[in-house]
Design a protein around this nucleic acid. Structure first.
Lengths: 358, 358
DNA sequence: ACCCCATTATGAAGCGATTCATGTGCGGGA
DNA sequence: TCCCGCACATGAATCGCTTCATAATGGGGT
């Protein structure tokens, strides 16, 4: 499938020769190092003639200034680091877009890394960013343990929690109310007549998963149903379409007497796998099984069975997080909580008049 | 929609007090700076008792080592920078995943940035990475101008082109044959009987767009059609669903006599917008208008009208790029070209026996 | 002719880490 | 008892840059 051709040329790796330093440039241009530095940083203070000589030397030597040295001396850098749970999840990339758009205005640069829901990786990236002196970090934490984020802030780097309310007042955060989201989804399904609902969820170490479950359970309790039996929670092997497929197979394998008639998926990727599998297995949606997702990603409305989903103001989440990062020194950190919104589509509403299956 | 509460506490920004340095730690522990450095880097060379004292001091002072200083002295860092065209495009995030997975093995860390198809931004990020001494960069260039990438390599940082064949032998690259992809799509549409085909494309400054167009035109010529009149190219205002909507509106507004009967979209996001709009306008797909996309993103098969699309080995593209980055010093750079594959679904195959959705 | 100030260039000091040649102390062999 | 070598610890030198006090230059005012 892949045809590759080798070139008969030099290696890709670094050449042995040393990178030119500012001293080399100064020597070549016949000026002092301070002058070169000025050309780089305050060109207006240098006589045009001198500046040109220096610039020529820079071009000649292929000089790139050493960011480490620069930063070591100057203090900080104009960049911001972001750590998200999953680089492949549209929710987070949309949020990253929001952050980037906002940061662009102040000509900050953005670096993104994905933790894959792994605390260790999250810590590693955070430390990397911190060691390299970013101005701020925006983190969507993998677990409840956010001591390392607090520590970063304590050491003087601005920090904002993304998609998670802050447990302490001195740390700013931007989040969406996931309990409310879970509640919305399940209240809707109950209103549609469902009395046993499956929840395809991720591990409870992830707060979002836990909160959505709690909201779901609360909605049941409010409706007089026992969450213990009416809410069938299944932990999927991954928050992906394949995870959803595995999860829904477990559901349909249940004995008909206890089988749920609706599924609430912890995100739309999982729901996608569910819809795919149900279609292959010939189960009608929503008649045979109603489905509600979470995130309302771009394609949710365009699926074979348009997917009901809980919508979050994703990109606004990002812009807001970026805003909070650099508020004036004396302003208090803020905890912003957005409210989710349920978008009902065909996958959960069989008839316009809110039909009851069974 | 957003309710926010202010806490009455300290500011989010950096605290005034200076970060502890290795000297502070040495002082606190009553040892020399060299010893602290050894505890950090070669703990086995330090007496356990001493080590503990130093570690206590580190914890006490909340010490984080200064990456800039470390790197200034030590040379390079174990991280890799990636610049992609669009952070919100699944194609690139999937590729990024591939890169990350591969790099993880060698415990490199990955930083990703999106250029939004802007050459300046691409240059900025590349320079940022280089100044900070990453081990290598992987770039999907926004335009044909890749001098800056070559320059990076020349200065000794490994570099690989992503999703674009390298024009010079000494620069490694990983790409998919986009001409072949465009050809596949259009050959298929012609085989379905279409004689006038719209191409919703991005700007020709983007190579992928240009190549797919060239492939499309070649397919037409081969079939004895005149690409000049039979291929109606429309440049969309953005490679997004909204861009697709704008594009297809232009197509349907054409006089019936010259209106194409099929659309080839430069990517699936655009195709998504096209399908959405056609459905709203009551145009049947594929009878009224056949649609083919590009990328075969996760959800392509699950849409209301399953979307025919050209599939690329996305994540393998990423792993391969990461592989190429750090080949042995003496091995030649490689140009890897993957071949795309057409996946035919309902959106372009009117008769069941031509397209089998699977 | 003289002085003064503004403009531009200079180069040493210092940022915080690593490295390495040098110092110190201690145990064991002669 | 003396000396050698080993195991640790020491701290000055160094990386490349920015900063800033100081020097050099030259033009204008008196």
């Amino acid at each position: 499938m892949a045809n590759s051709t080798k070139a008969s040329n030099a290696a890709n790796a670094r050449t042995p020769r040393r990178r030119a330093s500012i001293t080399d440039v100064a020597k070549a241009a016949g000026v002092a190092v301070g002058t070169v530095s000025n050309v780089l940083n305050k060109p207006e203070r240098v006589l045009p003639a001198t500046r040109e000589r220096v610039e020529a030397a820079i071009a000649e030597l292929n000089f790139v200034r050493n960011g480490s040295a620069r930063q070591l001396r100057a203090g900080t850098l104009t960049s911001v680091g972001v750590v998200v749970l999953d680089l492949a999840n549209p929710f987070f990339t949309d949020a990253a877009r929001g952050i980037q758009d906002r940061l662009e205005r102040d000509s900050f640069t953005l670096m993104v890394a994905g933790s894959d829901e792994d605390l260790d990786r999250e810590r590693r990236y955070l430390r990397l960013y911190e060691e390299h002196g970013v101005q701020g970090v925006i983190v969507s934490p993998a677990t409840d343990d956010i001591d390392h984020v607090l520590a970063v802030r304590e050491r003087g780097t601005a920090a904002v929690l993304l998609d998670r309310p802050s447990p302490v007042p001195e740390l700013a955060s931007v989040a969406v109310d996931d309990v409310a989201g879970g509640r919305l989804a399940v209240e809707h399904l109950i209103a549609q007549g469902h009395e046993r609902i499956a929840l395809l969820n991720g591990p409870h170490t992830i707060r979002q998963c836990r909160d959505r479950r709690d909201g779901a359970a609360a909605a049941m309790a409010d409706a007089g149903l026992d969450p213990g039996t009416a809410l069938v929670e299944i932990t999927v092997p991954g928050l992906t379409p394949d995870g959803g497929e595995a999860g829904i197979r477990e559901v349909v394998a249940l004995p008909a007497r206890t089988r749920p008639t609706a599924v609430f998926c912890v995100n739309d990727l999982v729901a996608l796998g569910v819809l795919r599998t149900l279609r292959r297995e010939g189960v009608a949606v929503p008649q045979g099984m109603a489905v509600v997702g979470y995130d309302d990603v771009t394609f949710a409305a365009e699926l074979a069975t348009p997917l009901s989903s809980v919508r979050q103001p994703t990109s606004e989440l990002g812009t807001r997080a970026a805003d909070l990062l650099f508020r004036p020194e004396d302003s208090a950190p803020e905890q912003v909580v957005f409210s989710p919104e349920l978008v009902v589509r065909e996958s959960s509403a069989s008839s316009p008049e809110a039909g009851r299956p069974r």
